[in-house]
Structure formats: structure tokens, C-alpha cells
Design a protein around this nucleic acid. Sequence first.
RNA 1: ACCUAGCCUCAC
Length: 242
Amino acid sequence: VIVLNRILDAYAGTGDAEGAVRIYELLRHRVRPTRVTFNTLIKVFCARDNTNATESVLKTMGNMGVAPDEVTFVTLLSAHCRRADARAAEGTLARMRSYGLDAGVVGLTSLMKMHGELGDIGRARELFADLAEAELDTTAYNTMMDLEAKAGNAQAVKGMLREMTERNVAPNTSTFNILINAESKKGSTAGATKYFLQMEAAGLKPSRFTYNTLIRCFGQAGDIERADAIYLTMLDVGIRPD
RNA sequence: ACCUAGCCUCAC
């Protein structure tokens, strides 16, 4: 089953829903599909915005006595958030409550991002504030920090970064990418460099996002030499340009 | 170190 699930997940990545269905049909009688199998199928169909197929997976789950869980609904919820469909997101929340499930950090983070990007950062802040301290994780902080950064609230970003360390929520590569990007948008190559060094000092590996952001930062600041040097460093550490 | 859901750059 795990092999099947992994294959289905790979199909989700390529957006090949037909291929996913083909292998699922081929194997569903040899191995018993689990909740993860169905959740992964839903992920496949959400990537294609195929609501009908998603509903039929839910039906099949019901017929097979496999109860949907938080992942099932949050997969749906996040898909609606990605499309900025607040109505549908609300509907999914109501539906999951009817199953006795509540949205956890992951779902709330998706909602935060949607509201923030729809211009309602106040709503995003409320959702963030409603998260229990024990639930706050790196991605929740990253998402809220990025929204604040993009809204131009540099002091809020600083405050959240401090709060993360106070609460022992470890920053990751995305955290620093967000900070570097925020400095870049302000035109501060010095600020971007500062966070890049902090990232390395924290033992985190710069990603393609990091290099792309830095190249753009120095490029638009007119420092082509430095942008080029960063590009070469990227190749050096084995990251392919995209 | 991970079978499934949420975060970061750019692609006009």
C-alpha cells in the first residue's frame, strides 16, 4: 500500500490524474487502499480542480467504511484557499465540523494566507492569534511573517522573528528566504546579506529560492558583479538554475 | 530523516 501511495503522490506532482487512476484501478484489488491512499487521490484531483472526482473519492471512502480525517478536509480546504475561494473554504470548514473535526494549524495557515492575499490581513492576524502557542509552528510563523512583510510592516516581522526564538520555534530555510526577500523588496542588499549569513550560521542550506532571491536583489540594485558571483556560487553548490 | 494537507523567489 505504501508503494501505491507513493506512486499516487508522484502522479499528484506531475498533475497526471489519468495515470494515477490507472494505477489505482490496477492495484486496488491486490492491496487494500487506506485513508492515506484516498487522501492522496484527493490531492491528485485537487491539483486538477476536479471537484466531481474528489466527491466520488469521498463516496468511495464512505462505502468502504474509511472515515475522512483532518488531512482529508484540509487537503480540500487548502485547494479552495489556493483558488482564493473563501466561500468554498467556509463550506469545507462546516463540512469537517459535521464530521466532528476541527481545522488545526495546517488548515488555519492556509486560511491565513488566503485572507492575507485577499487584502484582509486583519483576518489573517486573528486566525494567527487564535492559534494556541503549542500549535504555532515554523510554517505558521513563516506565512504570517511573509504577509506582514508584503504589507510593508517591517516592525511586525521583527517582532515575530523575536517571538519565534523566545518560543523556541526553529526558523527554517523558508524563514530566511522570506526575510531576505523582504530586504530585497526594500532595496537593501545589506539586509539581505545579513540574513543570508544568519541562515548559514544557523546551519541551514540555501535553496534555489534563496539564490534566485539574492540574484534578483543584487541585480535590481545594479550590482551585476555580485549577482553573477552568487549565480556561480549556486552552480558550485550543485543547484541548477531554473 | 520522510506514504497524504499549509509557508519562500522568478516565469508579463
